[in-house]
Design a protein around this nucleic acid. Sequence first.
DNA 1: GAGCTACATCGTAAATGGTTACCGTCAAAT
DNA 2: ATTTGACGGTAACCATTTACGATGTAGCTC
Lengths: 321, 321
Amino acid sequence: MATVSRVVNNNPNVKPQTRKKVFEAIERLGYRPNAVARGLASKKTTTVGVVIPDISNSIFAEIARGIEDIANMYHYNIILCNADKRKEKEIRVINTLLEKQVDGLLFMGGTVTEEHIQAFQTSAVPIVLCATRDEKGTYPSVDIDHETAALDAVNTLIRHGHREIAMISGTLQDPANGYARFQGYKRALEAAGIEYQEDLVRIGNYRYESGVEAMKYFLGLKKKPTAIFAATDEMAIGAIHSIQDEGLKVPDDFSIISVDNIRMASMVRPLLTTVAQPMYDLGAVAMRLLTKLMKKETVENARVILPHETILRLSVNHVNK
Amino acid sequence: MATVSRVVNNNPNVKPQTRKKVFEAIERLGYRPNAVARGLASKKTTTVGVVIPDISNSIFAEIARGIEDIANMYHYNIILCNADKRKEKEIRVINTLLEKQVDGLLFMGGTVTEEHIQAFQTSAVPIVLCATRDEKGTYPSVDIDHETAALDAVNTLIRHGHREIAMISGTLQDPANGYARFQGYKRALEAAGIEYQEDLVRIGNYRYESGVEAMKYFLGLKKKPTAIFAATDEMAIGAIHSIQDEGLKVPDDFSIISVDNIRMASMVRPLLTTVAQPMYDLGAVAMRLLTKLMKKETVENARVILPHETILRLSVNHVNK
DNA sequence: GAGCTACATCGTAAATGGTTACCGTCAAAT
DNA sequence: ATTTGACGGTAACCATTTACGATGTAGCTC
């Protein structure tokens, strides 16, 4: 038994001739190692748990792809759990993942509350946060700087001469995509000496339809904005279509910019100008970080902020005087 | 030990008072059952393996969501493996999934070859094919009728008076999205007494850009088609933009129809007319089927074809004489 | 050439953390 | 007093890893 184990695990302490015999027996008997028994004996499962808000959301799907590629590269498998940003469900899946003895945990999306921390602490497996962070900054995380990304977006509008800039925001309860991006918007206005006007901000739910609705509202204003900053590409595309459906034009009548750079941003007319967040890399870097933690390597910087980049395409123009 | 096991597994043969004491001890000691040990002893892991071509593809992501929801409902977890339709990688992940003692296997996307069958047969766990099937029909599967879906699409073009109908196809090596949809196109033409013309068919790779390219080709023809059937929505949207970029209009100058009904189909102008395949349901039904198989329930029909539905939106019009 | 050492190789058995078949005990019912 | 069923404990079992020990062999010394 021990020798077979050594052969299967490539332990050098076995004579080549014996190794060959073992391989032959394996072949002849159709033996397949049992990873569950192995996991019990070795206390390692080469499996990591991933909790994700919604795999059918293209942003998370892209991140998940990055996670899976790197996991695969280091011979880990992924147990995937949707949690829909519902705290109760998040806690539940964290616990079942821990029961399954995952070697590490990747937590994406949702807000990290005290209850999450407690659940994390019931176990010693390394945990990294992806596309989110905890308030206190005690856990390793990989994210972008949402506030600065939003600031950059609004600044390119300002550089194009716009001063009547509306925002389609997410809910301010959401720390990253909601609150931080909204803060970026406010800071940009402030830095440019533009007064913040409450009725130039609408709250959406990140989806296309809410972009359409919000834009309808702006189109109904007596004093219309000349540019719109949307917190997500999807809402921006909704806004574009809302404008076009009224017979108006982007960017001639309104400039539009947003944050994300989903694939669809280069599949609309006009091509959407947006601040790109490196989705695949968010997942890949988070997973890479987790592999280091699982191997107990020391990591220099466990709170990484990935750079964003403004992609100038065709939905932003200089303001018409 | 046995009593604790009974309590944890809700076995009725334990006095309420004892049960309570066990629960208290569990609470006090912070005991968490070890699913790996449990899996070894019980020979069940409550985990199913899912091999998927590419989770960042919105179609598969949507299917995966259906799979995960139903799995969750039946208290199974999902080990997710991307395989990119690469046979060698598919075989590899099937084997590692089997090593991990999954209780069932869901195979999506790629062609099912003799080698796949061989890999499947090395194990006794139930297997269901999702969004694909095997030639011989020996494995349970859930899919749509791609050929009829394509036929329906082309028929709605024909009903709108079109007779010069081009197709942007996938590669004919691909049995479902490629070959079957192409066959549907040919059958529809034949039934309407329209001659099949080779130069009205271009092969794309299912993606937006290849739709753009194919349409450019059609626009360069001296005798242009009046309608285009694209094998996927993405290519259809590419075609639409290709047309619009030339200053022409959909559906005034060209009618466009395709198959899939991805979210983006209702996020373009004009709204895309398409034959919807029920992606979420494909995953959900496949997973439900697998749960039955894993519980050794007898299933009446193990080869299910889900219905498709033509969604009339705005990209198809009556032909201009 | 005998004896010893060191090392490579391989086998033994404990350990991993549960499940479950089986058996004994005890109290209630007959 | 006997039977019965609920309850709970004992121990085998699951398939591996791994610490440890046994064996054998080569090389060295004397």
